[in-house]
Structures are given as structure tokens and as C-alpha cells.
Design a protein around this nucleic acid. Structure first.
Lengths: 195, 195
DNA sequence: TTGACAACAGAACGATCGTTCTTTATATTG
DNA sequence: CAATATAAAGAACGATCGTTCTGTTGTCAA
């Protein structure tokens, strides 16, 4: 897929898909792409298919591939001056989910409540990506179960005992009596800004 | 949706969708459901729609809703009282992408350098999800182009002039001479913890 | 200036789609 | 036993679908 326009068509398709999770009919794609012939739409989709952005189900329906969801990653040190083509900075494309989630079956998302970890850059309302497991290392940020409730704290050790240390001086260190039950380890963080 | 069979049909549909990310035609669903009449397939899908497992695009195509991916969080090894926070989504694919990216074509990921926004919970190495556009509102965190370099700051106004305010007292407020070039607006943030 | 190619437009067609309507079999309930 | 609900089957139909084939531009290099 080297045609310039195809990149533009792909973008429009991606935007539609983000809204509707579905690749519509050729007729509808005519409107979306702003062209008038179904045959040309087919040519475009075929090329996008050859470039492995989309593929067909056994029933002939078009569906997106992994590549379809890949996003360009730029370093902030990139020189500006190129207005549109920052996308064109070659190389790094990646998928956010795959970056954050290594083992989907063991991973769960938990919305953070409160500001007890604010000094670690974890705010109220952030979504924590947590890998469920029972063991953790000192220094890990863990989701522990204290008083039948989830709490997100840094795991530390004091006088041979495990403690949970908040990242906010306004909160007390938690020193669990007896065993400390660990739900999982923080492996990622996601935040969405209001728009 | 209280019919027993519908639950069974739903799981067959979920299985197909897991494979192909697409809800096929009524004719194909006849085979999948193991029935012979399209009208009955329609009745089933209509009921699944009423129960909010699927919905229709403006084009009439069926697409899954959030409910469609919901999983009973039974296998949670914990008997915790009320883990309000566990988002039971655990859908099959790309939930984080979907959460953070509304318009893929205008969205770019930029790795954050430095700690000038640390008080806003944005750390060095975090990945900023940026929606490319030229205008922003006061209070938005924007990616601006200053001296041919990207910089992430809060947009503010001072004496009628736009300024870029860092979230770290160790850094100076940037008062651009002349025009301020905005690259995009921060819509999300992603962080990965070393493991 | 010509000819190749890219980028569409448009018509034509049979297959398939979703929809509606009618009919049938089995199970449940009063 | 009759009435009703559930769970389909099946036909019929017009709309829409994807596909193929043929034209029409505009561009650019030879």
C-alpha cells in the first residue's frame, strides 16, 4: 500500500470503526471516503487488505487486523516543523493494550479511588492495570486486600514485617496484623482526560 | 431476555464474534445457532438487542455493546466485600485503546521527557495520548511547539496572552513571543511499570 | 503527442440480505 | 381438555450487496 490516498482512506475507516466497531457496506464507504463508485471502494479495501490492515472472514466480511489498531509513537525530542507528517516519522507503531497487558487472563482493570498514591503520580479516577498474582517484590506497587477492600500501595518491609506504604504523607502506613493478602501487582496505569 | 435458549444463542454468538470480530448475516447465524429459519434468528437478535447485548449502527448492522463482553467475575479468588472498583469489562480486545482513542486518525502517542508536569501526575517516560488539533481551551494540557521542540504544558492566559504553565515549581512559565503553535491536546496518559 | 497509469465514475447483474407474513410442532398451564 | 406461549419452519419479496466490466478523466514521463 504505497498510494498516498490510501493512508487517508484508512484513517477515515479507522475513525468510522472507532465509532461503530464495524466495517460498513461499499455503498456506505462511498460516503465515508467521499467517492462515488463502489468499484473503487473495493479496489481500496483490497489494497488495505494486501497491506494487512484488514482481512476477510470466511463469510467474506471485512474485519480489522491487529495492524489496524496500531498507533504511531513519537519521541518528544522529534524536530517540529513538519506539520502533518509527524505520523510519517517511521518506525514505532504499537498497540496500547499489548503494551500494557502481557497476560490478558491474569490482568484486570481497577479504577483508583482516593489520592493516597498521588506522589507516585496515581490520581483518583485513574485506571490501574493489575496483574493478578499472590506474590510481589519489595518496592512493587500492589493491590492488597485490607479489611475486605482493595487498596493500592507500595509494598515495603519494616522490621521483617510487610507494610503498605502510601505515596501521600497525609495517609498512614498500613501495618497488617498477621498475613498480608495480595491481590495483584500494578503493571500499568491509564488516565483519560475529560474533553 | 429471560428465555433459556437465548443465553445459549448468546454464547454461540459470542464465540463466533471472538473468532471473527463481526456479527454475520442471518443466514450464517442459522448455521451457527443450529436452526433453519432466518425469521427466528431475527427474533433472537431482536431480543438480544432489547436486553442490550447488541445494538444497531445507523446503517442497520448489528454490533456488540459493552454488556456483550461482560463476564461474571466469579472466578475471583477473593471473597472481598464489595469490590466496587473492578470493571468487569475484561472484554476480548483492545479495551484500553477504545477507552482512550476516539478519533484514531487524529491521535498520536508521544513519550514524555522530563518532569516538568510531575505535579499533574505526568512522569518522565509516560506515554501521552494526544489528539492533534490547533485550538485548545484554557486549562487544557497541550502539546505546544516551542523552539522546534514539543513541550507538554497547561495552557493558561495571563494579561490577555497565552502562556504555558508547567506543573513543577522548578520550571519557569513559558511566555511565547508572538504566536503560540499548538500541536494537540492531551486526552489520555499511559504508564508502564517495569516488571 | 502520445501513451501509460492512477484515480475514479457508472452501469449492469445475480446473489444475498433483512423483513414480513403464514404455518406448525411441542410444552406449559389453568 | 382447551387455551396459550414458546420455538421454530418456510415462503415470498423488494432492497441492497459485492462483483465485474467498461468508460472517463487528469497527470506525467518519454
Amino acid at each position: 500500500m504505497n498510494r498516498d490516498k490510501d493512508t487517508e482512506y484508512l484513517s477515515k475507516l479507522q475513525d468510522y470503526y472507532a465509532d461503530w466497531k464495524n466495517i460498513p457496506s461499499y455503498a456506505r464507504l462511498c460516503e465515508i471516503f467521499g467517492i462515488a463508485s463502489k468499484s473503487w471502494v473495493k479496489a481500496i479495501l483490497t489494497r488495505l487488505g494486501d497491506a494487512d490492515f484488514i482481512e476477510r472472514t470466511p463469510d467474506g466480511a471485512w474485519i480489522p487486523t491487529r495492524q489496524f489498531f496500531a498507533r504511531p509513537l513519537a519521541e518528544s525530542s522529534v524536530q517540529a516543523g513538519m506539520p502533518v507528517s509527524v505520523t510519517a516519522t517511521q518506525g514505532d507503531f504499537f498497540i496500547i493494550d499489548e503494551m500494557l497487558i502481557d497476560t490478558p487472563s491474569k490482568t484486570t482493570l481497577i479504577t483508583v479511588k482516593g489520592d493516597s498514591m498521588i506522589d507516585a503520580g496515581i490520581h483518583d479516577g485513574d485506571v490501574a492495570v493489575v496483574e493478578k498474582r499472590m506474590t510481589a517484590n519489595i518496592g512493587d506497587i500492589v493491590v492488597a486486600i485490607v479489611d475486605d477492600d482493595f487498596t493500592l500501595k507500595t509494598l515495603d518491609r519494616e522490621n521483617g514485617e510487610f507494610i503498605l506504604r502510601p505515596a501521600n504523607p497525609a495517609y498512614p502506613v498500613i501495618r497488617p496484623q498477621g498475613t498480608l493478602e495480595i491481590f495483584g501487582v500494578l503493571t500499568g496505569l491509564v488516565r483519560k482526560y475529560r474533553r
